[in-house]
């Protein structure tokens, strides 16, 4: 017997929805700029970011705004995202 029928199967994968994200305009320096730091809540992330924030404040004269992300595995709350709009830049790292 000769089998001529092809086997047709369906691709099981689905990628992320494409969005038109783009990089914000880069700052030439942060002096006098409002810079947000987001502590993601993982252990020691606050230690690193607070040292970095201090560097920005003392040596680069930035206005530092601090946010604590209470939950590292859930999205940043919308209300806090709105507050970020008033900042010129955001430093968001992942500590663990």
């Amino acid at each position: 017997m000769i089998l001529t029928d092809k086997v047709i199967v369906l691709d099981p994968t689905e990628g992320p929805v494409e969005t038109e994200n783009h990089l914000a305009a880069r700052l030439s320096d942060v002096s006098g700029k409002r810079v947000a730091f987001i502590n993601n809540g993982k252990r020691n992330s606050d230690v690193f970011l607070s040292a970095l924030a201090e560097e920005f404040r003392e040596n680069h004269h930035a206005e530092v705004v601090w946010f604590d992300k209470k939950n590292p595995s859930l999205p940043f709350p919308d209300a806090l995202l709105d507050q970020l709009k008033s900042c010129h830049a955001v430093v968001a790292g992942v500590g663990d």
């Binding site: 092809k6 086997v7 199967v9 099981p12």
Partner: peptide, 18 residues
Amino acid sequence: LSSKKLEFNLAQEAVEHF
């Protein structure tokens, strides 16, 4: 159904492809 269709000669080929 809108998923991409893949064609094989044998079911086992599909399994190996996956």
